[in-house]
Each structure stands twice: as structure tokens, then as C-alpha cells.
Amino acid sequence: HMTFVALYDYVASGETDLSFKKGERLQIVNNTEGDWWLAHSLTTGRTGYISSNYVAPSD
């Protein structure tokens, strides 16, 4: 899985979204569905959809 880092804080707007904080590391589970990616937070252990605009590759 690809690992990304959050560029900004994000508060989930629905049950399927994932809230995260700036600097949080996220593993991308599925990024084939446009701008919203299914991600797993390595910080909180939660999984949900994130906006690809809010993250950048961590490598």
C-alpha cells in the first residue's frame, strides 16, 4: 500500500469519511475511484474515505 501524509486537518462530513489531522500518516487502500480515496490511518487505526487533495506522498 502507498503511504501518504495529511497536509491539512480534515473533519469527516459523513459516516464513510475519515477524519484526520495534519501530519497524520495514511495508507491508501483504494485510489481508483476518482478524487475520494479509501484510506487507513496509521495513527488512529480507522478506515474511511479521504479527499486526495488533502494528502501528499510521504516518500
Rank of each mutant, 00 (worst) to 15 (best):
E15W: 07
E15A: 12
E33R: 11
S51V: 06
L38E: 04
G48N: 00
N53P: 06
Y8W: 09
A6F: 02
S58K: 07
T3V: 15
L26K: 00
E24H: 03
R46Q: 12
T16A: 12
A12C: 05
S58R: 06
A39G: 05
Y54M: 15
L42A: 05
V55L: 09
F4T: 03
L42G: 02
D9T: 06
I50E: 00
R46L: 13
S58W: 15
Y49T: 04
T3H: 11
T32F: 10
A6T: 13
T32D: 10
R25T: 12
V29R: 06
H40P: 00
D59W: 14
D9N: 05
T16Q: 13
L18H: 01
A12D: 02
G48D: 01
I50F: 02
T47G: 04
L18V: 05
T44S: 10
R25H: 11
K21R: 11
R25V: 15
G34S: 10
Y54A: 15
E24S: 01
V29W: 13
A39K: 00
V11Y: 09
D17F: 15
R46F: 08
D35T: 12
Y54D: 07
T32K: 11
K22C: 07
K21D: 05
Y10D: 01
S58E: 15
H40G: 02
L42R: 03
S19F: 03
A39Y: 03
S58N: 09
N31D: 11
Y8R: 07
W37Q: 03
L42K: 04
L7R: 05
T32P: 08
N30I: 10
G34R: 08
S52C: 11
D35E: 13
P57C: 09
L18P: 04
W36E: 05
E24T: 02
R25L: 15
I28N: 05
G34L: 07
F20H: 01
V5Q: 04
W36D: 04
D9R: 00
G48M: 03
D59I: 12
K22Q: 08
I28V: 11
L42E: 07
S52K: 15
F4S: 02
T16M: 13
E33A: 11
A39Q: 00
R46E: 09
H1T: 12
T43Y: 05
V55W: 05
V55K: 02
G14P: 02
W36M: 13
G48F: 04
W37T: 03
E24A: 03
L7C: 10
M2E: 10
N53V: 12
W36K: 14
V55H: 03
S13C: 14
T16K: 13
T47I: 12
A39S: 02
T16P: 05
F4W: 13
F20L: 06
D35R: 07
Y54W: 09
W37S: 01
L38G: 00
K22W: 03
L42W: 05
T47K: 07
Y10Q: 03
Y8V: 11
A56V: 14
L18K: 00
L7N: 03
A6K: 00
G45C: 07
T16F: 15
N53C: 15
A6H: 00
N53L: 14
D59F: 13
N30D: 13
K21G: 05
T47W: 13
K21T: 09
V5N: 02
N53M: 14
V55A: 05
Y49D: 02
T43I: 09
E15G: 08
D59N: 12
M2D: 10
V5F: 06
L42N: 05
H40F: 13
P57D: 06
Y49I: 07
L7Y: 03
N30Y: 10
M2Q: 13
A39E: 00
M2V: 12
T47N: 06
H40M: 14
L7P: 03
V29D: 06
E33I: 11
E33T: 12
T32I: 11
V5T: 08
D17V: 08
Y8I: 13
E24L: 02
I28A: 10
S52W: 06
F20G: 00
L38V: 06
G23I: 01
V29I: 15
E33W: 08
S58Q: 12
G48S: 01
A56R: 10
K22S: 05
F20R: 00
V11G: 04
V55G: 04
Y49V: 05
L38F: 09
G34Y: 08
Y54R: 05
F20E: 00
S41V: 01
G23F: 03
Y8G: 06
A39V: 14
I50V: 13
N31L: 13
A56Y: 09
I28L: 08
E24D: 11
Y10C: 10
L26W: 01
L38I: 06
R46C: 09
F20A: 01
A12M: 04
R25A: 07
K21F: 07
T44L: 01
T44P: 00
Y8N: 06
V5R: 03
V55D: 02
S13T: 15
Y49C: 09
N31A: 13
G14C: 15
Y10P: 00
H1I: 13
A39I: 05
A56I: 14
T44K: 01
M2C: 15
H1R: 11
S51I: 09
V11L: 08
T16N: 14
Y49G: 02
E24I: 03
T43E: 13
V5K: 03
T44M: 02
L38Y: 09
R46I: 06
N53H: 14
W36H: 09
I28E: 01
T32H: 09
D35A: 09
G14K: 15
V5L: 06
T3K: 05
Y49K: 05
I28Q: 14
G23K: 01
S52E: 05
T32Y: 08
L7Q: 06
S41K: 00
L38P: 01
D17T: 07
L18G: 01
E24M: 01
T16Y: 14
S13M: 13
D59Y: 13
E24F: 07
S52V: 09
E24P: 00
G23Y: 03
R25F: 14
V5P: 01
S19W: 03
P57I: 11
R25M: 14
T3R: 06
P57K: 09
G23H: 04
R25E: 10
Y49R: 08
R46V: 06
N30F: 09
N31I: 13
W36F: 10
I28F: 03
W36A: 07
L18C: 03
L42S: 05
D35Y: 08
I50W: 01
E33K: 11
N30T: 10
S19N: 05
H1Q: 12
N53R: 13
N30K: 09
S13R: 13
G48I: 02
K21Y: 06
L26N: 00
S13I: 14
G45V: 01
S13L: 12
T3Y: 15
F20K: 00
E24N: 01
S19G: 06
T43L: 10
Q27S: 08
N31C: 15
K22V: 07
L7M: 08
D59V: 12
N30R: 08
Y10K: 03
A39R: 00
Y8H: 08
L38S: 02
Y10E: 03
L7T: 05
A6Y: 02
Y49Q: 04
L18D: 01
S19P: 05
E15I: 09
F20P: 00
S19E: 06
I50H: 00
W36C: 14
S41G: 01
D35I: 09
A12S: 09
T47F: 12
D59M: 12
V11S: 08
G48T: 01
G14T: 14
Y49P: 01
W36R: 15
L26I: 10
K21Q: 11
S19T: 08
D59H: 13
I28W: 02
R46A: 09
I50K: 00
T47V: 11
I28P: 11
F4Q: 02
S41H: 05
T3I: 15
L26Q: 00
T3M: 13
L7F: 04
T47P: 01
A56P: 05
N31F: 15
H40R: 15
A56K: 11
V29Q: 07
D17N: 10
Q27C: 15
E33L: 13
L18Q: 01
E33V: 11
L38D: 08
G48R: 01
Y10H: 09
A56C: 14
D9H: 03
A56T: 13
L7A: 04
F4G: 02
Y8M: 11
S51N: 15
S52D: 03
G34D: 09
Y54K: 07
F20I: 05
Y54E: 04
Y54N: 07
